[in-house]
Design a binder for these strands. Structure first.
Lengths: 340, 340
DNA sequence: CGAAATTATGCAATCGTTTGCAATAAACCT
DNA sequence: AGGTTTATTGCAAACGATTGCATAATTTCG
């Protein structure tokens, strides 16, 4: 139980505590909430009694009465082929930062991974559960429309993802298109003349990265080959190998949609005896911790995950206060290491 | 809100729904809960009405009344130097599996990262909040005693970590000592004659891995040097470099406490011009996804994270049902790749 | 010293569901 | 037909904390 346990009388409710303190439940509630309407001495007695008995007010009851829970929902939609826990490293890191950031602001975090295909109603269900004061959605996946629908009637929602012209829901995210441009520019600056994009262009974020690369390719009049690749690490390896088998001589610069893909690509290139960056330049995206430990260390486009988490929480807090916030677009940053 | 919205009358509570259905709130509650005590036709009408209006019963109210929340708390204590989000990759992966596994069983997951030093009361607070039906603690960190204390009075708790003789709290975890033995045996079988252990021996899991290595070293009469290394990726790199500078010629086989450390070690060895596995053999622990993509691919001790998550949830469910379960120790598995 | 202002406390309703018990209606038996 | 079961439903009391309002205690002030 607690450190000191001289209490035979179990005190579970505010009423129990009120009894042994010789006051009314209302007073206990006020004292514990630190309201100014109670006598300092009374408050002190109640607080010390509460500590002694290890009493904590029931959050559900409190939540019910106050019509707020102190809990923020975090939903991770697992789209299309992403079936399994793929979204991994990046999203999980973001989640860690989110947990810290929410804690700082006194909120708890309720995590839900959802498979939209099996459960079309996931977002309404989460919001309507009455368990959360607001929701953060990590990744738009292929649920753009659903999120838009909800955004109209529900203010306290912020989404991690890509921003599109005229979009109605509030997002925080990296400027993916700019990131794509930076990547392509770097590849060309490093001497590549025939580019390829490695990744699935279905999800909006990736589509934007691809579009950015296209911008540059068109401007510089350089060919850009799209090599559609699922992100599931199980299949991605083979898919990349197949792509390389088919197109290896046609390309000398690869922009991988994520560092994870880039790392797999590195392995596949090594297997084919192609040297990086001599034969092929490679740029990743994310700048995950392991990016500096690959061989060679990965040149990549950095997303500031910590800043993203801070942004998500800050915007959500403002929305909880009724403020109709704008989206927040973070600048990506080219990190040059040795792969390009 | 919902797909069809022909409803001007907003229906937020079970009472609202009861009114438009022309029955009593009690009946609605029973119908929605799928109890057998309502007429099939009535139930059907109520359910369809509920769907039409996008109504979902408030979980807080329900939780309060039923004295259960349908939420499992997951606590991640961040011990000692681990200040930041270090525990990362492994714990985060475990968390992902946990989320899936809990969802399958109809539970939600409430995540809390705690810094025990700042908040000695973390576990009691979490449990006493009334928000969760049970708790899973990910990692004992340096909180062994506190967890033991709580275990006596609180049944629905399961911990990921190391099992020790006579321990009172229920854990699920890998047999770390056996893992340590496997690692050391492999190093020796690969030709190493002077071993070193890389990692912090403070946390129990790591201490057990080290002890396992010691078992083998003693038995085979081989020296084993402990190279204390913090896990924080920022400092670990330098620390490892310093260790190597001091002891590189004295050792030819390294057992790293985690794959993350092993990967950093790989980089440090490369920097010193030492070839793996020719000059130095290296074995990691965890078998994280990236272990197969390092250069050379990492020989490591595999922990079955998915099985761990399943175990945690299953034991917790049994404890929620009042069963006083035993701990579950999973066998580690040596995965031979190319680093040893 | 008594009236008015101020401060502390208690009372009781409320948040939205669930559920034991009672009441009603319907069906079954002899 | 009358007396039992049985199947549905409604009523109202919880669950535990919060809070507006009223009351009691204390202080302030003319």
């Amino acid at each position: 139980m607690s450190d000191t346990k001289p209490s035979r009388t179990v005190v579970r409710t505010i009423t129990d505590l009120a009894r042994i303190a010789g006051v009314s439940p209302g007073t206990v509630s006020r004292a514990l909430a630190g309201k100014s309407l109670v006598n300092a001495k009374t408050r002190e007695k109640i607080v010390s009694l509460a500590r002694e008995h290890g009493f904590r007010p029931n959050q559900m009851a409190s939540g019910l009465r106050r019509q707020k829970t102190g809990v923020i929902g975090v939903a991770i939609p697992l789209g299309h082929d992403t079936r399994q826990q793929i979204s991994d490293t990046f999203f999980m890191t973001l989640l860690g930062f989110l947990a810290d950031e929410l804690t700082v602001h006194g909120y708890d975090l309720m995590l839900r991974r959802v498979v939209p295909e099996d459960d079309a109603d996931w977002l309404d269900r989460f919001i309507g559960s009455g368990m959360i004061d607001g929701v953060i959605v990590i990744g738009q996946s292929d649920q753009y429309e659903r999120i838009e629908d909800v955004a109209d009637g529900y203010l306290p929602m912020v989404v991690w993802g890509n921003h599109t012209e005229g979009q109605r829901h509030c997002v925080v995210g990296t400027d993916n298109r700019l990131g794509g441009r930076l990547a392509a520019e770097r590849l060309i600056a490093a001497g590549a003349t025939r580019l390829a994009f490695l990744g699935d262009t279905g999800p909006m974020e990736f589509a934007a990265r691809y579009a950015g690369a296209q911008d540059v390719a068109a401007r510089m009049d350089v060919p850009l080959l799209a090599l559609p690749t699922h992100l599931s690490p199980d299949h991605a390896g083979e898919e990349i190998a197949r792509h390389l088998a088919a197109h290896a001589e046609a390309i000398d610069g690869i922009f991988a949609a994520t560092d994870t893909l880039a790392s797999l690509c590195l392995a596949a290139l090594r297997e084919r005896g192609l040297a990086v960056p001599e034969d092929v330049k490679l740029v990743g995206f994310d700048d995950l911790p392991f990016a500096r430990q690959t061989v060679p260390p990965l040149t990549t486009i950095r997303q500031d995950i910590a800043a993203g988490a801070r942004g998500l929480v800050q915007l959500l807090l403002r929305r909880l206060a009724g403020d109709e916030t704008e989206s927040l677009i973070l600048p990506p940053q080219l990190v040059i290491r040795q792969s390009a």
